[in-house]
Structure formats: C-alpha cells, structure tokens
C-alpha cells in the first residue's frame, strides 16, 4: 500500500512538471471553463424564462445541479481523460507490455499516471457554483456538506468505472477508440434532473447508464431534497461498478496478446 502512495506522489510531481511546460494552456482552459459555465447558465435562463420548474426543481436547485455537473465534467477532463485517452495507443503500439511487467496493478498504472492541472478552473467553477446555490437554498450545514461529499465521491467512482470499462473494450476493438466520447456526449443528460425525462429515459439513466447517480443524486443532497434510498443506492452502485470495472480489466489483460513488433 505504501508503494502505491509513493508511486502516486511520483506521478503527481511528474504530471505537474509536465503541465508547467504548457502554462499557456491555463489561459485557454480558464476561458473554456467560463464559457461552458456561461453556456449552462444561458440554457437555464432560457428555460426558467418560460417555466417555473424543471422536473420539479426550482432555479436555485437547478443551479446546484449545474454545479455538480461541472464538478463531474471537470473531474473527467482533469483526471479520466488524460489517463484513459492513452490506453488505445498503449495497446496498438505494444506499450502495454511494459505496464504488465511492473510489479503493481496495471489498472492502477493506467488510471493514475497523469493529471491535467490546467483543467482545474472548470472544477473550481463547479465548486463555487454549488457553494453559491447551497447558500441561496440555505442548506449549508455540516451534515448536508458531508452527505454531498460522500455522494460526489461515489458519483466520481461510478463515472470512473464506466469510463474505464468503455476504454477497456479497446483491448478487443482496436479500431473503435471513441466509445468514451459516446458516454461523454450522453453525460450531457446529467445537466438536468432525471425527473425531467420521460419514464423510459429515466429508467435508462438510472439503471442502464447510471448518470442519475452521477449528478442528480449528489445535487439532491446539496439542495436538501434527497431520498435515503437513492443515497444508499448510489454507494451500492459505486461499489458494484468499481468491482465490475476491475473484473473486466482482468479479463481484458488476460486476453491481451501484445502488438507484433
């Protein structure tokens, strides 16, 4: 275990050094974060210009949801994308061989190698927005904050697992390297409370592709409208998804035959 922690520290230092080489990216990514914040806000304004609620959520509640959405999107850009984006190339070019030779879990090596520091503005914007919405809603207390954090962690675990599983398919489908992009585009649905969708889509977003647990559930906690069943379900789904992603990873690695070189 200590080995994993010291490795994490080395990866982090190395990623930071790498990012310092590209400081100009910070400007571009900050602009991008502001823009996507403005875009999200504009869409909400357009909706609430003509309606009082969306799926039973008021404007400040919808703001908290936008905050959670931006946090998760930031998490994807900051952490998931830079790591898993490289996996298809590792497989195609045979670099995966070296991962497997090292005396630590290959899933760990692939998952935690890089971070994109300059994607922090988006994450930070999401945190501020969530904090602002909770102040307006007057739900800021130690208990809700703790519950929101737990549910955000389990949301992150769920999104990580889905992303990991979709990328793992690259072991079999060399030519299909864009399945995560497909998930990313469906993740847009997480901007809205799951109750705003028709019943069949609600079912899909809860049980098949559990985006509801990624955004609606943590935001419900923050907005003070959580039901206990969904909270417990979120943690259960997170544990199950993590186990599933690890199982699929081991299956994939077992069938890996390396690139001929």
């Amino acid at each position: 275990m200590t080995r994993y922690f010291s490795l994490l520290r080395i990866f982090l230092t190395n990623s930071l050094q790498l990012e310092m080489e590209y400081r100009i990216n910070l400007v571009m990514d900050a602009v991008n974060a502001l823009l996507s914040f403005a875009a999200g806000l504009l869409v909400l304004y357009a909706i609430f210009d003509h309606a009082d609620a969306i799926g039973g959520w008021s404007f400040p509640q919808a703001l908290s949801l936008l905050g959670v959405f931006m946090i998760l999107e930031g998490f994807i850009e900051f952490f998931l994308y830079p790591n898993f984006n490289r996996l298809p190339d590792y497989i195609r070019k045979g670099d995966m061989d070296f991962m497997l030779l090292k005396p630590v879990s290959s899933q760990f090596l692939v998952s935690f190698r890089y971070i994109r520091l300059w994607k922090l503005p988006e994450l930070a914007t999401g945190v501020f927005l969530l904090g602002y919405a909770m102040t307006v809603l007057d739900t800021l207390s130690v208990a809700t904050l703790a519950l929101t954090l737990v549910l955000l962690a389990s949301a992150a675990a769920i999104v990580y697992s889905i992303w990991c599983m979709l990328t793992t398919t690259a072991f079999w489908l060399i030519k299909v390297d864009n399945l995560p992009e497909l998930f990313y585009s469906l993740f847009t649905a997480g901007r809205f409370p799951v109750s705003a969708f028709p019943p069949w889509a609600r079912f899909f977003l809860t049980f098949i592709l559990p985006i509801a647990f990624a955004t609606t559930v943590p935001a419900s906690a923050a907005a003070g409208r959580l039901d206990g069943g969904m909270a417990a379900g979120s943690v259960l789904v997170a544990v199950f998804a993590l186990l599933l992603s690890h199982g699929l990873w081991r299956l994939a690695v077992a069938s890996y035959t390396s690139a001929s070189s």
Partner: peptide, 27 residues
C-alpha cells in the same frame, strides 16, 4: 469504410439535440 464502426459511434455522439428534445417536450 475501414473505420465504419467508429463512424457509427461518432453519429451516436451527436445525440445532444435528442436529449434536449426530451427535456423541452417535458417542459
């Protein structure tokens, strides 16, 4: 044609308008 599955997935990534359709229809 060599990357036809990939192209199919790209088409499916263009579903944001369909998600918005459901939201607005509900509203």
């Amino acid at each position: 044609a060599e990357y036809r599955v990939s192209v199919l997935v790209w088409i499916l990534t263009g579903t944001a308008p369909l998600i918005m359709m459901m939201i607005w229809m509900g509203l």
